[in-house]
Design a protein around this nucleic acid. Structure first.
Ligand SMILES: [Zn+2]
Length: 368
DNA sequence: AATGCCGGGTG
DNA sequence: CACCCGGCATT
């Protein structure tokens, strides 16, 4: 009687793409009411504001590291430095002498990576089949690559990347800056730093709302997001999967989409590669458990991952563990809290899940 | 009870 | 490989 147990003869595929990213319209969660009435964003460093986020569509948002220094960020004297640097980079970035192609980003982002490209793999057909220890190459345990969500007592460990241009000014009109709360189970996203600062201070830190002389702890519980807003054009098409043969009325619940995996699609030209902590894997398709799982080398530019200094193997330390005696309540994997496909689409729409989810594997679309 | 997903199958 | 699922830790 299982919903999807019907004659599996023909799956329902709407042109291959359930819904395109960037076309989703999220309403709720982030609403005007989250922003202070009169507080029209004071945007500490005049980033141009994007306040009053009624709804924002997640197109390609690239998580930028942390943003450890919100306030007092412009020391009287050397304030201009970052600014200049940033400006310089952005400039050389977006105004490459001859690359004034299409009105959008010069580095054709869309071209290859669509978050949900269900099962079409291998455009260029040559994903070097680098080893990949058989398994679904992964390293669940001991992971920390991602800005793990902090928990109350957790001492913020964010001083890693203090460099690399902390506040990439929003580009012409393709990048918006948002601030996301990293608290355990709160993915609140606000448009202004002061916004989440207050949010965190009050809601989480249980502190007072006045931004005055707060120990600035809240600064550690939010991160900045650079949302690419240039794919407003695509998508929109198959947002309503009207199956031709009227099978499985999708009618997905009017849920506010939970930030899907940050589809990193920004191909760094060159200069940029040195300014941006390439902590994210690029190409990342839904199905393709390749994307970053399999060390996709040769992506055009030999962009060696900045990580993995690994001069010597750091594996050995796994000798003494009395077989069958795992501390059942030890360092257990904290099971990410992000809503995964199953919950998001529901069992009835299993066909929309990402492949991983369908196979009961770790979700690839909504990673934690 | 529902989820997320590892580990272990199957063609 | 693509695909499925038992089973178990988590929520
Ligand atoms: Zn999924």
């Amino acid at each position: 009687m299982l919903p999807w147990c019907q004659p599996e003869g023909g799956r329902i595929h709407f042109g291959g793409v359930p819904w395109a990213p960037g076309s989703i319209h999220c309403s709720g969660q982030v609403g005007p009411e989250e922003l202070l009435p009169g507080q029209k964003a004071e945007d500490p460093w005049g980033l141009g504001s994007w306040d009053e986020v009624g709804d924002w569509d997640q197109s390609g948002l690239l998580q930028s590291a942390y943003i450890p220094v919100p306030k007092q960020r412009c020391p009287p004297g050397k304030a201009g430095l970052d600014e200049v640097m940033a400006a310089a980079v952005l400039t050389s970035l977006s105004t490459s002498p001859l690359i004034l192609g299409p009105p959008s980003v010069p580095f054709s982002p869309e071209s290859c990576c669509d978050p949900w490209k269900e099962s079409s793999v291998g455009p260029s057909g040559s994903y070097s089949s680098s080893n990949n220890s058989g398994d679904w190459g992964w390293d669940p345990p001991s992971d920390q690559s991602s800005p793990s969500t902090p928990s109350p007592p957790l001492p913020p460990e964010a001083a890693h990347f203090l460099f690399g241009d902390p506040t990439p000014r929003k580009r012409k009109n393709s990048v918006k800056v948002m601030f996301k709360c990293l608290w355990k189970s709160c993915g609140k996203v606000l448009s202004t730093s002061s916004g989440i600062q207050k949010h965190i201070r009050t809601v989480h830190l249980g502190r007072r709302a006045e931004p005055d002389q707060s120990d600035g702890e809240e600064d550690f519980y939010y991160t900045e997001l650079d949302i690419n807003v240039d794919s407003l054009t695509d998508g929109l098409s198959s947002l309503t999967p009207m199956s031709p043969t009227s099978s499985v009325p999708p009618a997905f619940p009017s849920l506010d989409l939970p930030v899907p995996a940050p589809s990193e699609t920004t191909a760094m030209p060159t200069i940029l590669s040195s300014v941006v902590p390439t902590t994210l894997c690029h190409v990342h398709t839904d199905h393709a458990y390749q994307g970053c799982l399999t060390p996709v080398h040769s992506v055009g530019i030999s962009d060696k991952g900045p990580q993995l200094p690994q001069p010597t193997v750091i594996r050995p330390p796994v000798p003494a563990i009395p077989s069958g005696l795992k501390p059942t309540t030890g360092i257990r994997k904290p099971r990410g809290e992000a809503k995964k496909c199953r919950k998001v689409y529901g069992m009835e729409n299993r066909d929309m899940w990402c492949t991983a989810c369908r196979w009961k594997k770790a979700c690839q679309r909504f990673l934690d």
